[in-house]
Simulated assay, not measured.
Amino acid sequence: MAKHRIYTMSFASVYPHLVKKAEKKGRTKAEVDEIIRWLTGYSQEELEKQLEKQTDFETFFAEAPQLNPARALIKGVVCGVRVEDIEEPTMREIRYLDKLIDELAKGKSMDKILRK
């Protein structure tokens, strides 16, 4: 079976869209970065290096220093699919990120988004 094309897209090509979605709703790039760091365990410096390297999504998540165990608490629907029902691990990580950015754009507090 062929890989989904998002796996080969660079994370850096999608990142500005995540930031724009948040900023349109009055949120900040810093909050988007905090969510990504919480989810993946990247430091801000490591995140910026991944963006500079144009790392693809599959590699971005495969090289994540420490995927947050609390990400399993992320529930809900993204693009018509329940994130908790996605079996393919990389796609599930991508959809977790989508869901967190959606929650940010909908005005949820960072404590709730980061499952504190």
Score class of each variant (00 low, 15 high):
residue 92 R to Q: 09
residue 100 L to H: 04
residue 17 H to I: 14
residue 16 P to I: 10
residue 89 P to H: 02
residue 82 R to M: 03
residue 28 T to N: 09
residue 46 E to A: 15
residue 5 R to W: 11
residue 47 L to Q: 06
residue 24 K to W: 09
residue 108 K to F: 03
residue 94 I to S: 05
residue 6 I to H: 13
residue 27 R to C: 07
residue 62 A to M: 06
residue 31 E to W: 08
residue 55 T to N: 00
residue 43 S to R: 04
residue 91 M to C: 08
residue 11 F to E: 00
residue 14 V to L: 15
residue 89 P to Y: 00
residue 70 A to C: 10
residue 112 K to T: 07
residue 93 E to P: 03
residue 91 M to P: 01
residue 53 K to G: 09
residue 29 K to Y: 02
residue 112 K to I: 05
residue 8 T to E: 13
residue 17 H to K: 15
residue 38 W to I: 07
residue 80 G to C: 12
residue 46 E to K: 14
residue 95 R to T: 06
residue 17 H to N: 15
residue 106 K to N: 14
residue 105 A to Y: 09
residue 21 K to T: 10
residue 116 K to M: 08
residue 55 T to I: 01
residue 64 A to E: 04
residue 95 R to C: 10
residue 116 K to G: 07
residue 83 V to M: 01
residue 58 E to I: 00
residue 39 L to E: 03
residue 80 G to N: 13
residue 69 P to G: 10
residue 94 I to N: 06
residue 3 K to G: 11
residue 104 L to N: 10
residue 90 T to Q: 04
residue 65 P to N: 09
residue 105 A to I: 12
residue 21 K to W: 05
residue 70 A to W: 01
residue 54 Q to W: 06
residue 4 H to F: 11
residue 31 E to F: 09
residue 3 K to Q: 13
residue 49 K to N: 15
residue 60 F to G: 01
residue 9 M to R: 15
residue 63 E to G: 03
residue 94 I to Y: 06
residue 81 V to R: 10
residue 74 I to Y: 01
residue 21 K to C: 04
residue 55 T to P: 01
residue 10 S to C: 07
residue 29 K to W: 04
